[in-house]
């Protein structure tokens, strides 16, 4: 089994930089070189399995969005994590890997759906988990867990039931908390104003 050394990669590809990682080999790759690097990863280093495509929203930091890819080599039995920052904070884009791995198709659609990253060159970039006309990207940090009031697309059902997406009640739900700071200010029920159904009347 031949392990790739981190230095081997970093020496060969000047555009790569080392990424802090708790486990596997991890590199940062600029978005422009992503396709080039992944092609070499697949063909030369035998990373034949694209396991996961996702993104992280760093909220107020710049660059705000980082795309993260996990590859696995069934030959060398090792993982590699490739991260790529999106230049634009408002309209984040990354190149699509669909031409290299078919698995990227659904993964990228999911990341677009939940995080709002636009994958350039994707043949069918539309929502996959939420419905097509849903206006938000729920996994962004500025989106509340409870959701935002939104109309539903099915007109006939809406007419009969008056149904729409309404913010989920957080009071009385599972006791959850997030982030740092005082508990009373960080748990969702404190942040969420629509916690009480009666309040809306």
């Amino acid at each position: 089994m031949s392990e790739i050394e981190k230095s081997e990669l970093l020496d060969r590809f000047a555009y790569l930089s080392e990424r802090e990682s708790g486990d596997h080999l991890a590199v940062n790759c600029p978005a422009e070189q992503l396709i080039e690097f992944c092609t070499i990863l697949r063909d030369e280093f035998q990373f034949d399995l694209l396991l996961d495509v996702t993104a992280i929203d760093w909220d107020v930091a710049t660059p705000r969005f980082t795309g993260v890819y996990h590859f696995y080599s069934t030959v060398k039995q090792m993982y590699i994590r490739v991260a790529s920052d999106c230049k634009d904070n408002i309209k984040p884009t990354l190149p699509s890997l669909v031409s290299l791995y078919s698995a990227a198709d659904w993964h990228e659609r999911e990341t677009y759906d939940l995080m709002g990253i636009i994958y350039e060159g994707h043949p069918n970039l539309k929502r996959i988990l939420m419905w097509d006309s849903y206006p938000y990207h729920p996994l962004r940090k500025d989106f509340p867990l409870a959701g935002i009031e939104t109309p539903l697309p099915a007109e006939d059902v809406v007419e009969q039931t008056n149904l729409k997406v309404s913010a989920a009640p957080m009071m009385g739900g599972p006791f959850v908390s997030s982030g740092d700071g005082k508990m009373s200010q960080t748990e969702p029920k404190a942040k969420d104003e629509s916690w009480n159904e009666e309040k809306g009347k």
Binding site: M130, P138, L145
Partner: peptide, 20 residues
Amino acid sequence: VIGYLHRGDEKIAENMTYNQ
């Protein structure tokens, strides 16, 4: 077409402690 059981697990996880 998938997503009919999308319940928002990943968003929920960001609002919870690891044990929860």
